[in-house]
């Protein structure tokens, strides 16, 4: 079902259930949304994706996070205003205490004129630069590995392997958490043949054709098991897979 709504004075059509954030982004707005990822459940943690919304029939404007706010017919959305910027800047200031050097935050700080730090930085976080968005935890759990936990609560919350261990026993080294992390604060180190992440070191599997590492052996094994394939199916990197397909398509024998 489609609904009509107004984003910054322009009428747009969206699918019911879509978030205001997605709709605004489709409409070309640049909205900071550090804890949001289409593939995983929304938790609305960073509190940066603020917008102002007014429902039909209501005479007040509500300031809200947009990633967890669904569109509805007749909704009037404002994606930028002094009020939005003010509160967004304050929340950014709070996040900067945790990740003062994270490029994504620095860039936002420049946009929002956040300059001198007014608050003391957080120095005792177990994972420096982590902004506690739990994307790593959510991604890992969406993939079915559940190797990471959100631990504790309040300002003492952290993310990492369970049971206070350095190592995540259920991790397969797929690297998805690393990819998802907005501040790139998860230490992951790849060599030609190994990958170290969350206290573990995994053997990397090389592409049969070009020799580039594809992923860890442990990851490949779980993928194969899930797809009910023999572990030793063809080990090809994405690039080579695509090449093979195009080669086949192009081959005259076809």
């Amino acid at each position: 079902m489609n609904v009509e709504l107004i984003v910054d004075d322009v009428q747009v059509t969206a699918e019911a259930g879509e978030s205001v954030l997605d709709v605004a982004r489709h409409a070309g707005r640049d909205i900071p949304a550090l804890c949001h990822h289409e593939a995983v459940p929304t938790i609305a943690s960073c509190r940066l994706c603020l917008m102002e919304v007014r429902r039909p029939g209501r005479d007040w404007v509500q300031l809200t996070t947009s990633c967890d706010y669904p569109v509805s017919a007749g909704l009037v959305v404002v994606t930028d205003s002094a009020r939005i910027r003010k509160h967004r800047a304050m929340n950014l200031e709070l996040l900067l205490r945790r990740a003062p050097d994270a490029p994504v935050l620095r860039q936002l700080a420049a946009q929002l004129d956040v300059t001198e730090p007014r608050f003391a930085p957080v120095t005792d976080a177990p994972l420096p630069d982590c902004i506690l968005c739990e994307l790593c935890v959510r991604v890992c759990s969406a993939l079915g590995y559940n190797a990471l936990a959100a631990i504790g609560r309040g300002a003492h919350k952290s993310v990492g392997p369970p049971f206070g261990q350095m190592e995540a026993p259920d991790c397969v080294g797929c690297g998805s958490c690393y990819e998802a992390c907005p501040t790139a604060c998860i230490p992951m180190e790849d060599t030609a043949t190994t990958r170290a992440i969350w206290g573990r070191t995994f053997e990397l599997l090389a592409c049969e054709r070009c020799g580039r590492p594809i992923t860890t052996e442990a990851h490949a094994a779980t993928m194969a098991a899930k797809a009910d394939l023999p572990v030793k199916s063809d080990h090809l990197c994405d690039v080579c897979k695509r090449r093979i397909v195009s080669e086949r398509l192009a081959s005259p024998g076809r």
């Binding site: 960073c46 509190r47 940066l48 709070l94 957080v122 506690l132 959100a150 609560r153 300002a155």
Partner: peptide
Amino acid sequence: GNCTSCRD
């Protein structure tokens, strides 16, 4: 500990 604003 979910929201930046409340937590910190």
